[in-house]
Design a protein around this nucleic acid. Structure first.
Lengths: 227, 227
DNA sequence: CCAGAATGCGAGCGACCACTCGCGTTTGTC
DNA sequence: GACAAACGCGAGTGGTCGCTCGCATTCTGG
């Protein structure tokens, strides 16, 4: 196979010369795609609808993306990048003396904030309708999150077998996703209440594992608002 | 509008005269549909694929179902019916002296068993790809489950405000769904382990709400299998 | 045994979708 | 100002899908 073509079919070596206009269009299209994906999901979203939402023609969309999948991939990449830089390593390093409540509370708060700001993230990760390539990205993110959580748990719970640690990490992520769905489904005070419930469920789930730790406060639910 | 037509367009008053052959075909088609929905989801499933899976022609399929949606509706109805008769009122009445562990454990066991036996149930309820009518059925089931759980919780936790009760019911269902996903994703011993984790998470979440109850045993996790 | 209904078929219809192509417009460069 | 490249357009193409229709076959009641 030839090493490199000239002006034709170049995809990765020469990312194609873009004008400022083009970059703006790309951002515009990704924003529109995020909106459409959020409301209809990936498969049900039509490229024509995305182009319409962005106020351009279908042809213009395909000037910047080779196909529909690439739009979701690029969107996923940017989200992942933004996620990393939003709370960089905030999940990994854990001072073993940190109280469980604080560690869980801080992690949940950050994730919830991110997901509220980027609802398309949940839509892309949660749909059973995602084709091959995106599923890989999804799995990669999933694995990353799991290993992060696993590391965090390992620092909190030194005396737990690895197999149990992995399972516990899966459970934490699952419980978080369940809570997130409820959080996103509500607003205002009710949303806050669900955030508290989520933190509470996670803390109660993890607490007894923190067997030999000092100063374990009781995790009994605080007095609830009488409503 | 006329009260009833004769032989034309009758839909509900005269369910159309069926032969035994027809009933068999319907069951066959629903089974095929369940298989296809389970593997590909509702929207991605094509009626031609369902017909092929059932070994009949597309035309035959439409002899028994007016459209694709009706297949999912009928499937949902039969599932719901089977669910009701499988553990009828098993969720509703709760002896207030029942230990929390038993109540939760029994309910989870029953639901997990049902979902393992009918994987299409999870596929139909979990997909974000579901059109209007089915979503209504979904919501109806959701509401039914919620009120059942709410009733169960009310019998267990008499001194909790209604608003908190509703929220707690939502949380329980969400936590269950999260656990179910993990349970279905594993097999054998690992599946059993996740079932235990799910029960444990629910019990720990609910336990402190059972404030003024007698004989509350400690819910510390039992010694885990050493792998 | 026979009329009529129920069942079964599969090519085909219209709609929609991802994607393309030819051509006109704007922009950066010399 | 001129040339090329990037940008922009929208009708059109091939393909899939839900669904229909005309016709053949099988069953049922009288």
């Amino acid at each position: 196979m030839p090493a490199n073509r000239e002006k034709d079919h170049q995809e990765k070596d020469q990312p194609r010369r873009r004008q400022a206009r083009g970059e703006r269009r790309i951002a515009q299209l990704l924003e529109a795609a995020a909106a459409v994906f959020t409301t209809t999901g990936y498969t049900a979203a039509s490229t024509n609808a995305i182009a319409r939402e962005a106020g351009v023609s279908p042809g213009t969309l395909y000037q910047f993306f080779p196909n529909k999948e690439a739009i979701a991939i690029e969107l996923g990449d940017r989200l992942m990048h933004e996620m990393r830089e939003t709370f960089g390593e905030a999940l990994a390093p854990v001072d073993p003396t940190t109280p469980l409540e604080e560690a869980v509370g801080a992690a949940v708060d950050r994730f919830i904030a991110f997901n509220c700001e980027h609802p398309v993230f949940f839509a892309l990760m949660h749909g059973p309708d995602i084709p091959g390539r995106i599923a890989e990205e999804h799995d990669a993110l999933h694995a990353t999150l799991l290993s992060r959580i696993e590391g965090l748990l390992a620092s909190l719970l030194p005396d737990v077998a690895p197999a149990d640690l992995i399972r516990t990490a899966h459970m934490c992520l699952g419980l978080y996703k369940a809570g997130l769905e409820l959080v996103l489904a509500h607003e205002g005070a009710e949303r806050e209440a669900y955030i508290q419930e989520l933190k509470y469920a996670l803390i109660r789930y993890l607490d007894p594992l923190v067997g030999t730790r000092l100063g374990r406060r009781d995790t009994t639910r605080a007095t609830r608002t009488a409503s």
